[in-house]
Amino acid sequence: MWQPSIAPGAVDRIACVGAGVIGGGWVAHFLARGHRVTAWDPAPDAEERLRRIVGAAWPALESLGLAEGASPDRLTVAATLEEAVADAEFVQESAPENLELKSDLLARIDAAAPIGVVVGSSTSGYRMTDMQAAAAHPERLVVGHPFNPPYLVPLVEVVGGERTDRAAVEWAAEFYTLTGKRVVLMDREVTGFIANRLQEALWREALHMIAEGEATVAQIETAVTAGPGLRWPFHGPSTTFHLAGGEGGIAHALDHFGVDGPWTRLDSPPLTDELRKALVTGAAEVTGGRPAAELIAERDRRLIAVLRALREAGA
């Protein structure tokens, strides 16, 4: 059974393999949390580009508040991958989205990094089961899927592959949480993970409307940002639907509207008793069973805060 060499809260030295937009964003995030970071990227201009990414991100990070000792000076750029991960206590891989490349790279990282170190991949779509096939120690390889820019957007989706030890998945989830991330610890693998699949559904519907001449790009942007997008910082689709049911909640909304409305080109699954129960139970868990009036008042306060923040930002 795999065992970590260090507790998540004791990590200091982090290796970031890949220093593009996502990898550079991770570097900035970890530096802002006070870690020492060693990075490696095969591009000849990698160090110059990486330090430029960190420099551009640093004012925003300063405004949010830095951890004690946080500094861009704690960044080192290694000459080789092996040098970068040799004494790492956590490794974040952020190579381009190519399955063969990622599989080979994770196998190289696995061969060079200390055996008790967790290795996270920033893949935006691949299953870890497919990426860990060539690794000698696949039990410590996990997906840590961030969102751009990683130094500002808190979400990270964490899931292991078929050969990943559950202890490594839980270790990674705790580590990311301690660095200030909001972690979704997934129960099972799904290609594209959760948030990307939700984004993709909206994007495809938008493409259909543009292609059919039903809406312009500008109309769709306004429809999202001035409408449902305002609620999304604090209410996901199920809670939104729950409040649409008024005092009867999501159970009333499901009975009234169902799930297969005429407003999308995407097919919905049948509203079985099992799906209905999962939605009603899930909404109750998310809202803590609070009455609709209390939730609506809270929603309105949050909407006002979002609107004020947008106004102050000139949006």
Rank of each mutant, 00 (worst) to 15 (best):
residue 102 K to I: 01
residue 81 L to T: 03
residue 90 F to M: 05
residue 100 E to Q: 06
residue 91 V to F: 05
residue 86 A to Y: 01
residue 90 F to D: 07
residue 97 E to F: 03
residue 74 R to I: 09
residue 88 A to M: 01
residue 102 K to N: 05
residue 106 L to S: 10
residue 75 L to V: 07
residue 82 E to F: 00
residue 80 T to S: 13
residue 81 L to P: 04
residue 100 E to R: 07
residue 85 V to T: 07
residue 116 G to Q: 15
residue 116 G to M: 08
residue 78 A to K: 03
residue 106 L to Y: 00
residue 91 V to L: 04
residue 95 A to D: 03
residue 111 A to W: 07
residue 88 A to T: 06
residue 78 A to L: 07
residue 103 S to R: 03
residue 106 L to K: 00
residue 85 V to W: 15
residue 106 L to E: 09
residue 85 V to C: 14
residue 107 A to Y: 04
residue 113 A to R: 03
residue 92 Q to F: 06
residue 108 R to F: 00
residue 90 F to W: 15
residue 77 V to C: 13
residue 90 F to R: 06
residue 91 V to W: 02
residue 107 A to N: 00
residue 102 K to H: 05
residue 74 R to P: 06
residue 111 A to K: 12
residue 74 R to K: 10
residue 74 R to E: 05
residue 81 L to F: 05
residue 96 P to C: 03
residue 81 L to N: 02
residue 105 L to R: 03
residue 113 A to G: 04
residue 76 T to E: 14
residue 78 A to N: 15
residue 81 L to K: 13
residue 79 A to D: 15
residue 75 L to Q: 08
residue 80 T to F: 01
residue 98 N to K: 12
residue 89 E to F: 09
residue 83 E to R: 06
residue 111 A to F: 07
residue 80 T to D: 09
residue 87 D to G: 05
residue 98 N to E: 10
residue 95 A to E: 09
residue 75 L to N: 02
residue 98 N to I: 09
residue 95 A to H: 13
residue 106 L to W: 03
residue 114 P to C: 14
residue 94 S to R: 13
residue 84 A to I: 13
residue 99 L to E: 01
residue 88 A to Q: 11
residue 97 E to W: 11
residue 88 A to W: 12
residue 83 E to H: 07
residue 111 A to I: 02
residue 116 G to H: 15
residue 114 P to N: 14
residue 88 A to R: 08
residue 94 S to N: 13
residue 80 T to G: 00
residue 78 A to M: 10
residue 82 E to N: 04
residue 101 L to Q: 04
residue 98 N to W: 08
residue 114 P to T: 13
residue 103 S to H: 06
residue 96 P to R: 11
residue 110 D to F: 10
residue 110 D to C: 08
residue 83 E to N: 09
residue 109 I to M: 03
residue 81 L to G: 00
residue 83 E to A: 15
residue 116 G to W: 12
residue 104 D to H: 14
residue 102 K to R: 14
residue 97 E to P: 04
residue 74 R to A: 11
residue 115 I to M: 07
residue 108 R to P: 03
residue 113 A to W: 05
residue 75 L to A: 11
residue 115 I to E: 15
residue 102 K to Y: 02
residue 108 R to T: 00
residue 111 A to E: 05
residue 75 L to Y: 11
residue 78 A to T: 07
residue 107 A to F: 02
residue 103 S to A: 10
residue 77 V to N: 01
residue 96 P to G: 06
residue 100 E to G: 12
residue 100 E to L: 14
residue 113 A to D: 04
residue 115 I to Y: 11
residue 74 R to C: 12
residue 87 D to Y: 13
residue 89 E to S: 06
residue 100 E to I: 01
residue 74 R to L: 12
residue 91 V to Q: 00
residue 114 P to A: 07
residue 107 A to T: 00
residue 95 A to L: 08
residue 110 D to E: 11
residue 77 V to H: 09
residue 105 L to I: 03
residue 109 I to R: 02
residue 92 Q to G: 11
residue 80 T to W: 11
residue 103 S to Q: 15
